[in-house]
């Protein structure tokens, strides 16, 4: 169970972009989070993945309250999340080849021996040909790069996947391929998913449950009850 309890977060304490938000994702559940751009859903996704420290509130991962964020989070807790970002160009180090990109988490966690096998496996899963793997980010398309980023997110077998507008920059066929790859992984491992986006049709078909941004915050919940 991944729980966000009355999370308030942002980049300026006086003016948080996320106010008092509650959200839970049950084990194995796929939750879609819908909202207009700029509403703070990406910030919430980063809080959930322990990449952004909230001003207030708690993130509870399988009953364990997160105490640290970013590097201060224990490695086991950080790597429990596979994160895919909206813009593949910015989320790939321009100096690494796609193979190195996918293998980086394995090397960072001292599992370099598994690199050849895992990379070949995942490249097949996300549909990347061998010829592409030796290239650098500027030599492939956005869609191909996003496939590699998804492979990187899956390489440590995370229990939770956070997809922040994963397919916003991509065409329909790549979107279908990536969603299929995520669903294949979830079917195999039972991982939970938090998919953030503004494409209602996509999220409603992809996820078990979709919630709208406005339903999450305490204020709005209070408004509805009155």
């Amino acid at each position: 169970m991944l729980e966000l309890r009355s999370v308030t977060a942002g980049y300026d304490r006086r003016d948080p972009v996320v106010r008092d938000v509650h959200l839970t994702v049950a084990p194995g559940e796929a939750v879609g989070l819908l909202g207009p751009s700029g509403c703070g859903k990406s910030t919430l996704a980063r809080v959930a993945a322990l990449l952004h420290r909230p001003d207030r509130g708690q993130v509870v991962i399988d009953g364990e309250v997160a105490r640290g964020w970013r590097h201060r989070a224990p490695r086991a807790q950080r790597t429990a999340f596979g994160v895919v970002f909206q813009q593949p160009r910015l989320s790939a180090d321009p100096r690494l080849t796609l193979t190195q990109l996918i293998a980086e988490p394995l090397r960072a966690t001292g599992r370099a021996a598994e690199v050849p096998g895992r990379v070949a496996d995942l490249a097949r899963t996300v549909g990347l040909g061998d010829d592409l793997l030796a290239r650098r980010p500027h030599e492939v398309s956005d869609g191909q790069l996003q496939r590699a980023c998804l492979a990187r997110a899956l390489v440590l077998d995370p229990r939770w996947l956070i997809c922040d507008e994963m397919t916003a920059m991509l065409d329909a066929s790549t979107t279908a391929a990536l969603v299929a790859a995520v669903e294949g992984y979830r079917a195999r491992t039972g991982a939970g998913l938090l998919a953030v986006g503004h494409d209602k049709v996509l999220l409603e078909r992809w996820c078990d449950r979709t919630v709208h941004w406005d339903e999450l915050s305490g204020d709005a919940a209070a408004d509805r009850t009155t």
């Binding site: 790597t79 910015l90 989320s91 960072a108 990187r152």
Partner: peptide
């Protein structure tokens, strides 16, 4: 940059 976020999430140390 997001690629630093991705590295942190991938278990990379400081």
């Amino acid at each position: 940059r997001p690629y630093v976020d991705a590295a942190i999430s991938g278990g990379a140390s400081r």
